[in-house]
Simulated assay, not measured.
Amino acid sequence: MRRSLRFALVAASLVASTAFASPTNPQNGVEYTTLSTPQPVQAVGKKVEVVEFFAYHCPACFSLEPGLAEWVKKQGDKIVLRRIHLPFQGPADPEAHLHLTLQAMGKEAEMHGKIFQAVHVQRVRLMKDEQIIDWVAKNGIDKAKFMETWNSFGVMTKLRRLPQVTTSYQATGTPTLIVDGKYQTSPGLIADKLKIQDRNQILQAHFQVLDALVAKAAATK
């Protein structure tokens, strides 16, 4: 009897958690998780830092990009977006190396969309060093300056540290977003927890969750 009652209570709690799941009122462990160790943020004042872990070859990141750009624009000066390329190929990941080099050159914003278009629309392979160096030289970046930055101490140091950074943020896939160094969410998590299959609905719910997490973080500043 007690065993049956215990199972009934567990089942009821699962139904309740699903029933109250809402992207406009996200719950820890449902639409987002809280990092076991909060990470330091670079945003100053009352601005909320949002970190996107992404990969240039990631189709979901490419799909997210237009909506993310609009969301960032809507947030205005309330947030600061920072991107980190997940090093899928380890501490010498060529795509992550490219991203860090563009950041150091002040070319990230200029080239970000172009790289996504090259990879996902033009089907250009940018998974090896030589492929990347050849592509950037043909797309408006001075090759000598690029190589100088590519091989610089600062970029190489950040590249070697990326796996450790990724582990600290508990980021295992892309796209993953971290709000205020502690709240982690992703379109995939939301689709799974809210049982949504339509891509547009997933993205809409995802941005609603981000809205709520930014408001939650801002309230503590």
Rank of each mutant, 00 (worst) to 15 (best):
H120L: 07
L81N: 01
I132Q: 09
R82A: 09
D134P: 00
P66L: 08
F53N: 02
F88Q: 07
S63K: 15
A60E: 11
L100Y: 03
A69Y: 01
L98R: 01
R125W: 06
E70S: 13
K74R: 14
M105I: 00
V119P: 07
M127W: 08
F116Q: 07
R125V: 10
A109K: 00
K73V: 06
D93N: 13
H85C: 12
K107Y: 05
M105F: 00
K128S: 14
Q122M: 11
E52K: 07
H120S: 04
V124E: 13
I84P: 04
F116K: 08
A92V: 15
K114L: 04
I133D: 12
P87F: 03
G76E: 07
L81F: 04
P87I: 01
V50D: 12
W71R: 09
F53G: 04
E130G: 05
H120F: 06
L100W: 04
I79M: 07
V124F: 06
D129Y: 14
P91I: 13
P87D: 01
W135A: 08
E108W: 04
W71A: 05
K73A: 13
A55K: 10
G67I: 09
L68A: 12
G76M: 04
G106L: 09
E110V: 01
G76L: 04
C58W: 01
P59Y: 12
G67H: 15
G106D: 07
P94L: 12
G76K: 02
K114F: 04
M105G: 00
P66R: 02
A104R: 13
F54S: 03
E95Y: 02
V72E: 12
V121N: 09
C61Y: 05
F53I: 06
I84D: 10
A96K: 03
M105E: 02
F54E: 02
E108A: 07
V72Q: 12
P66V: 06
V119S: 11
K128H: 14
A118Y: 03
